[in-house]
Design a protein around this nucleic acid. Structure first.
Lengths: 338, 338
DNA sequence: CACCAAAGTGGAAGCGGTTCCACCATGTTT
DNA sequence: AAACATGGTGGAACCGCTTCCACTTTGGTG
């Protein structure tokens, strides 16, 4: 029912090849013929079938993004960056939300299977060995964001350095007993940022000959409630820390809630530092590490397009810079009362 | 290079038609033949081409979502609901971010143009007349969320009722001078929720013979900063209101910031009510209207699928319920000091 | 003036599926 | 035993585009 290239050709009194050439701005068409074809296109309100085009060209002009839980604020910012970059490049974006390892495998398999996309970006999520092999076999280019895999191009922020900066900031304020609230380790998903940030904090402490007590490190669910639980545990230890570092802002909000619950004044009694600098961090005046989330998305797209063009020559690992944003939740350590 | 249905047919010693029948679980295939085909598929690790399938079937199993500014928290929740419902139905989701009217037209045109999708959902965004005509012509089913158009199926929450409930809540607390911070009116985008909520508040006041002073109504940019600006304006009037209603939580956060800035204690000196009950509302203990955001997404998908099935018989307008969540930013009106 | 390169052009083949139609065995009915 | 459903099956045609190849025209060139 919809008009096809043949209808246009007939109307313009030319062959389909010529119409196709006009559509694709190819040179070898006489100016007068081109005008006639364009007129026919306009008259018929013709639009080429993207599907037929795909089949013929073996290109879809679409890329897929798979990410853990798309409602996580940092994930959203990254997707936003991706969306911008793709739109600018005239590509479509298909999105898939992944919440468990099984669903990840399923999603990856599906992504590798269809010829529906030209490339894929994984956010905070790395494909498993078998899935990766599948992808390799299909030749689909892939870029990871905030995830690690030895042999896959990826965009990450310098988590260890970020942790280090957080640690130094707290040391400067006189804190020596520092706690850490992190995400659950999920080696299966290939995401290590929480652990890397912890490592940075530890390194900063070690520079001063200090350490972090194992009972002051708790890893729990990535949610406000999870952060609150973890902080509760830490704060109920004898001799609790005077500062808590959270692996991300969402957890930090939970830490703030736990502090409030215990009647601790932030930052007088307890300093809290987050990570990511999401929008809401400003809302509660949270001191946090800023990382360029949106840029991580655009950078991933840049890499992906370069791979598609065959012009990619960057390092496997692009590292984005971070910087500390000092707000209202950190202050000098309280005098030791005990 | 990838294996095709022909490869499978050859390997299994059958015709392509038979392989196709097996792939689509059609009945008329002998059990022994079916087994042989399945074996061949497994051996070759064959996956049918989605594109070829699309071309032949004239169905894409993909739907598009166009929304204003995808980083708005309420929009994200809606998308989340859509994503869930689509994944459950085995459909793909393509996303397009729209920020201006021009970009909207462009996006709509593109959506209506390609044969790449089976349907579309618009969030807080209605197509313009010309674009709508285009969509109609293309026969593409469309559902709107949080947007209005006489003749397009849509999912909205009962904004007037929500506003009314907010108004009554404040009246019960003894507030009589109430301010309103809203989104800019954008008739071109077909989004009226801010105005509808305002209308509800006004209706509640009228029930008591009260009104809302025009200088206590300010509409500004949909952002924290915008809300802050608007609230500043209102609070600097002589005889400012004792309560401010914001058309959404993001604006309410701005109102809170403006109050803090002026040294007003919330809720002692000023009550603040938001709308949406986004995640961060809980974080700052904001009293707000809850509306089922995620459900709005699933409902929109349900409608869209029904239209695609030809089984849709619902009203053009699905209205979702709202309810007030009382938290810490509303309290009895202060004694009149003047 | 014959010859040839270059610019334009038409249309068949191919992309990888689905489906319809023709056809072949069977088993069942008269 | 002839007539005939019926379950299986192969394969051509088709979906709507791109591209390659063959062909015609035109304007130089020797």
């Amino acid at each position: 029912m919809p008009t096809t290239i043949g209808d246009v050709a007939r109307r313009a009194g030319v062959g389909v090849g010529t119409v196709s050439r006009v559509l694709n701005n190819q040179p070898k068409v006489g100016p007068e013929t081109r005008a006639r074809v364009l007129a026919a296109i306009a008259e018929l309100d013709y639009v080429p079938s993207a599907t037929a085009r795909q089949l013929s060209l073996r290109r879809t002009n679409t890329i897929a993004v798979a990410s853990i839980h798309i409602v996580i604020p940092s994930v959203i910012e990254r997707i936003h960056g991706i969306e911008r970059a793709l739109t600018a490049a005239g590509l479509d974006l298909i999105i898939r939300n992944v919440e468990t390892v099984e669903r990840r495998n399923e999603a990856v398999r599906e992504i590798a299977r269809t010829d529906r996309i030209d490339g894929a970006i994984f956010i905070s999520l790395a494909p498993g060995a078998e899935e990766l092999a599948r992808i390799r076999r299909s030749g689909l280019p892939v870029v990871l964001i905030d995830a690690h895999h030895r042999s896959v191009p990826r965009v990450v922020s310098d988590d260890v350095e970020g942790g280090r900066l957080v640690g130094r900031h707290l040391l400067e304020l006189g804190h020596t007993r520092i706690g850490f609230v992190g995400d659950p380790p999920r080696p299966a998903l290939g995401v290590q940022s929480s652990r890397m940030r912890l490592r940075g904090v530890i390194e900063a402490l070690q520079e001063r000959g200090l350490g972090i007590a194992p009972e002051h490190i708790v890893e729990g669910e990535h949610s406000r409630a999870g952060g609150q639980d973890s902080a509760r545990t830490i704060l109920s230890r004898p001799d609790p820390p005077t500062a808590i570092v959270a692996a991300n802002d969402t957890l930090a909000f939970g830490v703030l809630a736990a502090a409030r619950e215990r009647g601790l004044d932030v930052p007088r009694d307890l300093s809290v530092v987050g990570y990511d600098d999401i929008d809401a961090a400003d809302l509660v005046q949270l001191t946090t590490m800023h990382q360029p989330l949106r840029e991580s998305g655009t950078e991933a797209v840049r890499r992906l397009l370069a791979i598609l063009d065959g012009t990619d020559n960057g390092p496997l690992r692009s590292v984005l810079p971070v910087h500390l944003v000092k707000r209202g939740t950190t202050a000098p350590a309280p005098e030791r009362t005990a």
